[in-house]
Amino acid sequence: MKKIKLPNPLLIFMIILGILPLLSSQHFYLHMLTLVFLFAFFSEAWNLISGFGKQFSLGHVAFFGIGAYVTGILYADYGISPWIGILLSGIGGIVLSLLIGFATFRLRAFFFALSTIACAEALRVLITYWRLGSTGLGTTIPAAKGFKYLTFSNEIYYTYLAYVLLLLAVAAAYKITKSKIGYYLLATGEDEEAARSLGVNTYRIKLIVFAISGFFTAVGGGFYCMYTRYIEPSMVFSIDFSVQFAVFAIVGGMGTIAGPILGSALLVPLSTFFRSWIGGLFTPIGFFSYGIILIVIILFIPGGIMKLISLVDEKFFKKLPIPEK
């Protein structure tokens, strides 16, 4: 293993992504990039625990929703700056991840996935009950201008904020995979029993990584709520989000750092295209085809885009993801 060369492809890739927002100032283009970065970020966070650690979570929307609600409510109801709100969101994400992890990490693979859905759904119902019991409406985030309130007139600020988030997640993923925790996480994902027999406290490793993943997702949820300016339980706790985080990573390549970004870059524009360009009336056709695309990808390229790339150019990309994928 020649160590020195390792970061290069990933670094180049991230720099290229960083230049993209400067290429055009068209609002739609930037909006699309913001979404790509943001969902790549979510997918990257999901990939930490579910890709590297193989703990298949389908309840990550719980962190997303909690993040959106903490930031949104603190700002809309109490006027607290979203910057502080997002930080608190992150802490909320950590607390929630520890609770969910405590309840579900002893379950075997698929039961874990189902339990995370159950947690997210239970939370959705609770928040619905709490917020919508009287009004039946979601919460609109007031649009006060200024940096302090995370409100910008130019889309490019949002794009770069999303980019920074993605950069943080990628850096964290890179750092983790090169560390003892990362090695232990991979071992846990491969074979938990064997890992335990070698002295790995798999439960603790999973909790730590789940907390990191939950933190990022909740922070992103806070940002998302400031970006869309409207939150409603059925929306920000929708199981569709959980599935999307997973789908992007799977299509791009689970358990690789670049995978979630590639998946998001491919599928976010595609689904937006289906939703908006074909026109509202035909939206179902879009999702219909989306479903078919999903099935086709799972059946015919099970390893995702990263697998394809590694087949095409083994030498260059083999070292791009973390060890031996």
Partner: peptide, 30 residues
């Protein structure tokens, strides 16, 4: 189990439980 491993009990399994997505040396490094 992990605490017992730290105390000094090592084991193998009936059907070898190798971390198959890691290299041979990484298995030992774990």
């Amino acid at each position: 189990p992990h605490e017992r491993s730290i105390l000094g009990i090592g084991r193998t399994f009936q059907l070898p439980k190798i971390f198959s997505n890691m290299s041979v040396i990484e298995n030992v490094i774990i």
